[in-house]
C-alpha cells in the first residue's frame, strides 16, 4: 500500500475512527476512574476541581488497603473458592445434560429442556426471602456451599444450551463408528465428547467464573463475615473509621476487576463468535 493510498484511506475513515474513540472512551470511563483514582493520594480523589491524572502516582492506597482492611484478603479468598467450585460444579452438571439434549431425541427430553428454559426466567431475588430461613434451618447460612449451589443453578440453563449447541456441531458419525468398534457409552463420552468439547468447556467455565466472581445480590444477602465475597466487601467498605476511604475502595475495586478483565480477554473471541444461539450473561 502506498502512503498516498493510506492517507486517503485514513481521511475516508476518520469520522468512523472518531466515533470509535468516543464509544471506547465512553465504555471505559468508570474503569479509568477507578484505576487512576487508585493511584492518587486520597486527598486528591476529593479534589475540587477533580484531576484526570494522578498529580503524583502513589501505591499507598494498595498498601493501606491490605493494612486497613485485612478482611479484603479473606474476601478475595472467598471469591476464589466460590468461583472455582462454581466452575467445576457447573461444568460437571451441565456437560452430561447438554450431551443428553443433543443426542437423545425422545420427547421427554425436549419437554425437560423447556422446563429448564422456563426456570431460567425465575427472578433470583424471589427465592431469596424463603431461602433465608431455609438456609438457617439446614445450617448453610453464610457458607461457601450456598453461593456455589446458587451460582451453579442460575447459570446451568444457559451453559447447558451453549454446550448443546456446540455438541450438535460434533459429527455423530464419530460416535457411531466408536459404537461399531464396541465402545461403551461411557467410553464414547470420556474419549470422544470430552476432549472434543474442551473449547466450549473452557469458554463456559470462564462465563460461570466471571459471573461468580462478580455476583453481588446473593453474596450480599446470604453471606456475613464468613463467606463474604470481594464485591460485597467493597460495597460495604464505604464505611470506616474516618468517613469513606475512597482510596481503599478504588484500590480494592482494581484488585477485584483486573482478573475479571483478563478472563474477558481470554474468552472474547468465544463471546462474539458463533454463539448466536442465545449466549449471554445474566
Amino acid at each position: 500500500m502506498t502512503s498516498n493510498n493510506m492517507l486517503s484511506k485514513i481521511t475516508r475513515n476518520l469520522p468512523y475512527w472518531i466515533l470509535l474513540m468516543i464509544v471506547v472512551l465512553w465504555s471505559i470511563i468508570p474503569i479509568y476512574t477507578a484505576i487512576s483514582s487508585s493511584f492518587k493520594i486520597p486527598r486528591e480523589i476529593f479534589n475540587y476541581p477533580p484531576t484526570y491524572f494522578p498529580a503524583e502516582v502513589t501505591f499507598s492506597n494498595f498498601a493501606r488497603l491490605f493494612e486497613d482492611v485485612p478482611e479484603f484478603v479473606i474476601a478475595l479468598r472467598n471469591s476464589a473458592i466460590v468461583t472455582f467450585f462454581s466452575m467445576v460444579l457447573t461444568i460437571s452438571v451441565c456437560l452430561p445434560a447438554a450431551y443428553t439434549f443433543s443426542r437423545f431425541k425422545a420427547p421427554v427430553f425436549r419437554r425437560s429442556a423447556i422446563v429448564l428454559i422456563a426456570i431460567r426466567m425465575f427472578p433470583p431475588l424471589v427465592i431469596s426471602v424463603p431461602l433465608f430461613p431455609i438456609l438457617n434451618e439446614i445450617g448453610l447460612s453464610d457458607s461457601h456451599l450456598t453461593l456455589i449451589l446458587l451460582y451453579t443453578t442460575f447459570q446451568s440453563t444457559i451453559i447447558t444450551l451453549i454446550m448443546k449447541a456446540y455438541i450438535d456441531g460434533i459429527p455423530i458419525e464419530i460416535e457411531e463408528a466408536a459404537y461399531v468398534d464396541g465402545a461403551t457409552m461411557y467410553q464414547v463420552f470420556s474419549r470422544i465428547i470430552l476432549p472434543l468439547s474442551r473449547p466450549v468447556i473452557v469458554a463456559t467455565a470462564i462465563m460461570v467464573g466471571s459471573y461468580a466472581w462478580n455476583e453481588f445480590q446473593f453474596g450480599f444477602l446470604f453471606t456475613s463475615t464468613n463467606a463474604r465475597t470481594a464485591p460485597v466487601l467493597i460495597a460495604e467498605m464505604v464505611g470506616s473509621l474516618t468517613g469513606v476511604q475512597w482510596g481503599n475502595v478504588f484500590a480494592a475495586s482494581v484488585v477485584q476487576f483486573v482478573p475479571a478483565l483478563i478472563f474477558l480477554w481470554v474468552i472474547q473471541n468465544q463471546l462474539i463468535r458463533g454463539m448466536t444461539s442465545g449466549a449471554t450473561k445474566g
Partner: peptide, 30 residues
C-alpha cells in the same frame, strides 16, 4: 477495541455502582 467496549461486562454491579456514585457526586464529582 472490542475488549475495551466489552469491559463493563467484567465489572461487578457493586463496583460499577460505587464508581458511578463517585462520578455523579454533586459536590466533587467529575
Amino acid at each position: 477495541w472490542i475488549a475495551l467496549i466489552l469491559a463493563p461486562m467484567a465489572m461487578s454491579p457493586a463496583i460499577l455502582g460505587t464508581t458511578w456514585k463517585y462520578l455523579f457526586n454533586s459536590e466533587f464529582g467529575p
